[in-house]
Design a protein around this nucleic acid. Structure first.
Length: 800
RNA sequence: GCGGAUGUGGCGAAAUUGGCAGACGCGCUGGAUUUAGGUUCCAGUGAGUGAUCGUGCAGGUUCAAGUCCUGUCAUCCGCACCA
């Protein structure tokens, strides 16, 4: 058969669409399979080969499931709010709506050209008002339930994008979008109280099937630690200085305290501090630094002692000094620490520099050289002396603290509340009204969606004000509560909002009454398999689990966790082994590959190039190799005239069916394809196959190269669509060969092989090995010490 | 610094419970077809003339180690003064 991939691919893509081949049905009697991939941000530069790899994995699984009789939901959509579109719109003068529509149309066309079996009737667009209506609706539910609050704090601000960023978006001290340096700025910020769900997010990980490193990253991100809060009496004042520690048992070793430069104690006791000028100066210096500089740079400890205020160590009763230093953060714990220089390296460094006492309370190290952080016997600690187990000494101390009313057990998280607003136009408007008499008032549900006003000018205001603030007709409104004149909130939601619940909307995308019907949610949830990039496992994946768990607590979704299983694909690197980038000129456009080699080749190659979860460089010649494979498959019908089944090929078929079926389930597409290539080599060596065997072959290959396989199937008289035909099954008995070749070793070294019946006993195996002339010759004159036979594998004769 | 992962031919990579290292593909070499290039097909392809040696390096356990243990080096990723 001539492999005219262009004609074939167009033909079958049209046919699948015309016949609604991949539309998930509402037939609840069938077993369901919901496979989810991260929907793309429709950027102006079009699709990247990375998208193809990301979607090809579950594409193969989904296609296999359909052939196995499942009702499959494999949806796609567009996460289209966000800065790149807005920046592009500002640059070109086009409206973001127009830009977005154009980009979505382009992505859609590209995705269809690759032949993905998405259910195109359920496309979701986060910027569609019928979608963001429900994003706002969920936000209001959170507002109603006390999970939304506003606070004035120092925030990460990107001077270039003129936007406030979450900690997650400003990692490493630079803006996630434009990579400019982040500065700290005081702002009114909307927060979602995600910390309230910290324990639930952590505990929920126990019941889901995520890759171990994904779980670990989430655990690190949430960063739960247990310890104790202890209140230190400030001397001569009716004031307690509260600290958090994970090692309350080292309390007897506390020789000073450190508070963050922004700690309120300073303001409160300004009058009593005799060196307030020095303290203010230090504080100013710190304020100038970004959090990045404060935390990232390895440097000497700095700080200033509070003159005029001291604290009392509640264990030893001794008076101890208090310092301010930037190594203590206001944002973690209570912004104050008890310093135990003998057993904490940071405290040790600080104590050495400022000449503070170092008191050993755990034996085992040399505290004159460095802090000792290991375990050991407690000393200098009164009632704790003699304890050697960390757990016991900690719980004993907590008992004591509670008995004396100066402290209690406590839990802290690294995760902070989620800064949930941006001063930008292209996002979901936050549906809140500020009323001079009623305060913050929710926009009534029946008024949703609160639409983005259609305006010409959407450039950000000076000083980081939202573009919406300039639109009087949007801002001025009446209070939903009292009817008086009020002003709308002008900030919009961050880009992560829309993606936090999109997988629920796919289930019922055109519903006007609810974000999705309960009946459908019950059938389709949870997502059976979610695949995406490693870069999203701490942000999007945590945010969306949070939203989902919130909805679960309201009884609006049926299961406690949204995703039963989560995997991740590896990146595709440029041919030179580094990340693809425009500036390096190593970007591969998937459409070029489709045009030159065909979609089937592209799909096969991205899955064949290596382990699905690992990064791998692009190789054009390997693409050609995959094309060659498909061309040879296209020629298979010419030798499918065989009438008799050969035993050898039959066994090879059963082995391949098994291998491909099992490998797909483990995302081992590279070895699945290799197995089919190997089978093809065997077929060519034999020179003929039966028509049934041909049909089996193209059924196995169909999820990878569906256009070509459909074409062959039709040409051979197959009924209906191959994509909806039956997945082949294997007979375990036929995967086992009757005779096998085993290795023969002498003293662990390979010396030859013998062919024996597969069910030979150990004795027969050894006998057969000894009969082999080469082996016999080598054993000549040697004493046999030991004989080992492993059925199906080898014989090892230990001889001297 | 802490946590995690990885290290196998010229290249991408395979390799149940320890059991013939290098499947499959690329590349390369030789041959056939072709006016030629390309394509396609056939044969070969870890190193070494050889006995043998070979999975980052050094040890160890074992009849047997890519796989298990100890140490070490390198690379990548995540977190990062988290009290």
């Amino acid at each position: 058969m001539k492999y005219d991939f262009k004609a074939i691919e167009k033909k079958w893509q049209d046919k699948w669409e015309a016949e609604n081949a991949f539309v998930a049905s509402d037939d609840y009697s069938k077993p369901k399979f919901y496979s989810l991939v991260e929907f793309p941000y429709p950027s102006g530069s079009g699709m990247h080969v990375g998208h193809i790899k990301a979607y090809s994995g579950l594409e193969v699984v989904s296609r296999k499931r359909r052939m196995q009789g499942y009702n499959v939901l494999y949806p796609i959509g567009f996460d289209a709010f966000g800065l790149p579109t807005e920046n592009y719109a500002i640059k070109t003068g086009m409206h973001p709506r127009v830009v977005t529509d154009k980009n979505i149309a382009r992505f859609t066309e590209q995705l269809k050209k690759v032949g993905f079996s998405f259910d195109w009737t359920k496309v979701v667009d986060t910027t569609d008002e019928n979608y963001y209506k429900w994003t706002q609706w969920i936000f209001l539910k959170m507002f109603e339930n006390g999970l939304v609050f506003r606070d004035k704090t120092l925030v990460n601000y990107c001077p270039s994008c003129k936007v406030v960023l979450s900690n997650e978006d400003s990692q490493g001290g630079e803006c996630d979008i434009c990579h400019s340096a982040i500065v700290q700025k005081s702002k009114d910020v909307w927060y979602l109280r995600i910390t309230e769900y910290a324990d639930k997010l952590l505990d929920g990980l126990k019941e889901v099937d995520y890759l171990p490193n994904i779980k670990m990253q989430q655990e690190n991100w949430i960063g739960r630690s247990t310890g104790a809060f202890v209140n230190f009496q400030v001397k001569g004042a009716d004031e307690k200085l509260r600290i958090y520690t994970t090692r309350p048992d080292t309390l007897f070793g506390v020789t000073f305290m450190v508070i963050a430069p922004e700690h309120p104690l300073i303001e409160k006791y300004r009058d009593r501090l005799t060196n307030i000028d020095a303290l203010d100066a230090y504080k100013d210096e710190c304020a100038k630094k970004t959090e990045f500089e404060r935390t990232q740079l390895v440097k000497d400890k700095t700080g200033v002692k509070l003159e005029g205020l001291t604290a009392i160590n509640p264990a030893s009763g001794k008076e101890i000094p208090i310092y301010i230093s930037d190594y203590v953060m206001m944002g973690y714990g209570t912004g104050a620490i008890m310093a135990v220089p003998a057993h904490d390296q940071r405290d040790w460094d600080f104590a050495k520099k400022f000449g503070i006492d170092i008191v050993e309370v755990i034996k085992g190290g040399d505290i004159s050289k460095e802090a000792y952080t290991g375990d050991g016997e407690m000393v200098n600690s009164d009632f704790l002396n003699g304890y050697t187990n960390k757990k016991d000494s900690i719980s004993r101390m907590i008992e004591e603290l509670q008995a004396r009313g100066i402290g209690e057990m406590g839990v802290q998280y690294k995760m902070k509340d989620w800064a949930f607003n941006r001063q930008r136009y292209w996002g979901e408007p936050i549906p809140i009204v500020h009323c001079p008499s009623c305060g913050m008032v929710a926009v009534p549900y029946e008024e949703l969606p609160l639409r983005l006003p259609n305006v010409e000018n959407f450039e950000p205001g000076e000083g980081g004000e939202s573009p919406l603030a300039k639109i009087d007709s949007f801002v001025n409104c009446s209070c939903p509560k009292c009817g008086g004149a009020a002003k709308r909130e002008t900030d919009t939601m961050p880009q992560w909002a829309g993606s936090s619940w999109y997988f629920l909307r796919y289930i019922d995308p055109h519903n006007d009454e609810a974000f999705a019907s309960q009946e459908k949610l019950k059938y389709w949830m949870p997502v059976d398999w979610y695949n995406g990039g490693m870069e999203h496992v701490t942000r999007h994946l945590i945010y969306s689990r949070f939203w989902y768990k919130f909805l679960y607590d309201l009884g609006l979704v049926p299961y406690a966790e949204p995703y039963a299983k989560r995997t991740a694909q590896g990146m595709i690197l440029g041919a030179n082994g580094v990340k693809m980038s425009k500036s390096l000129g190593n970007v591969v456009d998937p459409l070029d590959v489709v045009n030159e080699y065909g979609a089937d080749t592209l799909r096969t190659y991205v899955l064949f190039m290596g382990d699905y979860g690992s990064a791998a460089p692009w190789s054009e010649s390997s693409v050609k190799g995959c094309k060659r494979f498909l061309e040879r498959v296209a020629d298979l019908p010419s030798i499918a005239k065989g009438s008799g089944v050969t035993e050898k090929l039959e066994s090879a078929f059963h082995k391949t069916i098994k291998k491909v079926s099992e490998d797909i389930e483990q995302l081992k597409f590279n070895t699945a394809i290799a197995a089919m290539m190997g089978l093809l080599n065997e077929i060519d060596a034999v020179g003929s196959i039966t028509k049934d065997e041909l049909m089996t072959f193209i059924s196995l290959l169909c999820p990878f190269a569906p256009h070509l396989c459909e074409e062959i199937y039709e040409a051979e008289g197959g009924k209906g669509l191959l994509s909806l035909a039956t997945w082949p099954t294997w007979d375990e008995a036929k995967t086992i060969d009757s005779t096998i070749e085993i290795a023969v070793q002498i003293s662990g070294k390979l010396k030859g092989t013998v062919v024996i019946p597969a069910d030979a006993s150990r004795e027969d195996m050894i006998a057969a090995a000894k009969q082999n002339s080469k082996i016999a010759a080598q054993l000549e004159g040697k004493t046999i010490i030991k004989e080992i036979a492993v059925p199906g594998k080898l014989v090892n004769i230990v001889a001297k």
